[in-house]
Design a protein around this nucleic acid. Structure first.
Lengths: 243, 243
DNA sequence: CCCTTTGATGACCGGCGGGTCAACTATAGG
DNA sequence: CCTATAGTTGACCCGCCGGTCATCAAAGGG
């Protein structure tokens, strides 16, 4: 009995909404345009969403949740490498993973700045979360003797967060995928040089020599092959270090 | 003959508009509210401005022009000190001056993120200009042998710009004036350590020792005196114009 | 083939707020 | 005091768009 709902409708609407929100922002986006791009009527939009804000909130929550799994604190990586060079490789591989994800979702990233009104608390909370996670990393690195003890964790996290955020902004302006690896290596070295102990800075220099001699990072390969299996990846680092 | 126009009206409207735009953004700001806060009628608003956008544009142009004079390229400072410690002092004093200005105009800074629609090109152009100026400084420092030659000027400028931008964002969240000097010293040292030649990094360390021994910077004092003179001069100039 | 049920449509409603203008008011000159 | 002139007002107009609902269409059961 009765008619069956189009199962693609909601997905198409979400996709269209993502597009239009990214182009126009919350206020500028028109429900009619979202519906038209999804190939359905305006009324159909309201079969799936209570309001325009609801749709944006739904999109945001889903995206931020996916982001969340990428911006993990150090506690989420039980077996972090201790060797400075391996640590650099690991961090770079992790950054590349994150920015690859951001690049894939660049359409979505464009929505965030436009969240100025009723939904901005979501973005603000997310930024605060990122900032706290960055701070955790700085604290961790300081405890591990990688960063100098006198480095102010709050300020360091602010600078790091701002710099990386600017990189993502710059990525959004690019038409083709930038050399994220180069960008992120540069950023990583910048902050390791700035905040690292003299030993760490020396390790950065040494690693650059090694790289310029054509010897690639070992950990980076391991991590990109086994993205999800962190414990195995770190076990690999340790084993190889003894070779 | 005839009635004389209220000379305060436009100024009051601009002030009120600044307030409301800062609180609500372009779209959220209502002409009626601006007029009410200025103590005039809605119609009076349109005696002075063609439209809501015009008012915002006028405010923006004026503010960005004032900003412009602060973000000067190295060419604007003919006699830059060559001694590393003095250079640090000079740069810090300059940064403090800029951020002091930004702090004084923090209400205005809050408007910028909300410029998403018809006026965003102004902000975008301004950001690009800041970025270019930062790049000029990086290039200059590299030419002067203060930054290492292999430092990528574009990426360095991006990171620096992002980090300093984040500092200003964080400043906007503060209720009382933060210790800008500490923040900016931290940021300055961060990037001088990251990009500086080994000699420069040594100078940073040496300077910290000197400062911790209570010996203040000489150049900083000289510059801050000079800068106070300059801001006092412009303030006087404005007061005279308003009389 | 009709009836019921439920998905889908788009014309329509209503409020919001940018912008206008007829009416009003203050001032100066005669 | 009167009149001309120009500043000031706020009620009103109107387009836009979020949200609704009478109406139609599709699917399945009897």
């Amino acid at each position: 009995m009765s008619r069956i709902a189009d199962p693609k409708a909601k997905i198409m609407l979400l996709r269209a909404a993502e597009e239009v929100f990214a182009e126009k922002g919350l206020a500028g986006a028109k429900v009619e345009e979202i519906a038209r791009r999804a190939g359905v009527s305006k009324g159909a939009f309201y079969l799936h969403f209570e309001s325009k804000e609801t749709a944006l909130k739904q999109l945001l929550e889903s995206f931020l949740a996916r982001c969340h799994s990428y911006f993990a604190p150090p506690a989420a990586y039980p077996g972090l490498p201790e060797d400075p060079a391996d640590l650099l490789d690991f961090s770079l591989a992790r950054d590349v993973q994150i920015y690859e994800f951001l690049w894939q979702n660049r359409a979505f990233l464009r929505i965030l700045p436009s969240c100025q009104g009723n939904t901005d608390y979501l973005v603000i909370a997310f930024r605060a979360e990122i900032d706290a996670t960055t701070r955790e990393w700085v604290d961790y690195w300081r405890r591990e003797g990688i960063f100098r003890p006198e480095v102010d964790a709050d300020l360091a996290a602010t600078l790091i967060g701002g710099a990386y955020n600017e990189l993502s902004t710059r990525m959004l302006l690019a038409e083709t995928r930038p050399q994220l690896e180069d960008w992120l290596r540069f950023a990583l070295e910048t902050f390791f040089r700035a905040f690292g102990t003299p030993e760490m800075v020396a390790a950065v220099d040494f690693r650059n020599q090694r790289v310029s001699q054509g010897i690639g990072g070992r950990v980076a390969d391991a991590l990109s092959n086994q993205m999800m299996d962190r414990s195995r990846a770190t076990r690999d680092h340790k084993e190889r270090r003894h070779i």
